[in-house]
Design a protein around this nucleic acid. Structure first.
Lengths: 136, 136
DNA sequence: TCTCGAAATAATAATCATTACGAATTAAAT
DNA sequence: ATTTAATTCGTAATGATTATTATTTCGAGA
């Protein structure tokens, strides 16, 4: 996923193209890892000193809604990363030091054989935490 | 796990027995589900009008440290429940409406065969979200 | 039972992430 | 170029959590 593809998808959905959005997308395209809202704010303030959290969060949630980003909660903060729909649904190993991730293709929902009759499954989360080779 | 057993374990670890702790433990023993800090505060204020968040959080974290409680993050709030060490390590189905949980004995770490060589696994999270039969 | 020191609590303030809102600006359709 | 709704800015409010300090309480030992 590159910036232009993402902006194209936004256009289809009726969202406007703004400099701030371009910049947000650039950051995610450049870094393949979960990033906290405040990091995004800090980055963007280099180019747009006036951006507010309102802009950051509104866009992050909107981008998550249209499946360009995916979100998770790390240490009480929401983190976002580019959704890698290239290789479909998957999970992550997340480094507790640097935040970098490694994709895990295995999905536990495929192998689960618990009796969930009567339960309406909406979602699931499977994440492995630890140290990546660089931080070990 | 009952209140007395828990207090016994605290004593062994050198923690004192206080009315507030007894009350906190009672709440968890009575309700077999994840509870938010503010719910605990509300409950306890019936008996101890003056309790502060400080007391709540200090005790919840302490009880989690000694493995009496276990914690998870739901919708930006930390939730706690009595650790059910009766049937060992397991995961949960969590109802997104009422918060009640159903234990899942299946653990994905047992069946995973991804190459995690060089990665130091510290922890993992597997949770299924949805509607329980009562809320369906 | 009484005393004392450590641990725990109460009351309050501070911090941090997130959300909200009115006014001003801007993209893009006509 | 004009219009209009979407978007942003600037700032303030909210809500969960953490920190601080003075006071109280627990419980071990005299």
């Amino acid at each position: 996923m590159n910036v232009e593809t993402a902006l194209q998808r936004l256009k289809e959905k009726g969202f406007k193209r703004t400099k701030q959005r371009e910049r947000i997308l650039e950051i995610f395209v450049k870094q393949d890892q979960y990033i906290a809202a405040k990091e995004i704010l800090k980055e963007i303030q280099n180019d747009f000193p006036g951006v507010s959290y309102d802009t950051i969060y509104r866009n992050l949630y909107m981008l998550t809604d249209v499946d360009i980003l995916e979100a998770t909660e790390l240490g009480g903060e929401k983190h976002f990363r580019l959704g890698c729909d290239t290789h479909g649904h998957h999970h992550h190993f997340i480094c507790t030091t640097c935040g970098k991730t490694k994709s895990i293709e295995f999905c536990p929902m495929d192998s689960i054989n618990e009796n969930l009759h009567g339960y309406d499954v909406e979602n699931h989360k499977f994440e492995i935490y630890g140290k990546c080779p660089q931080c070990h």
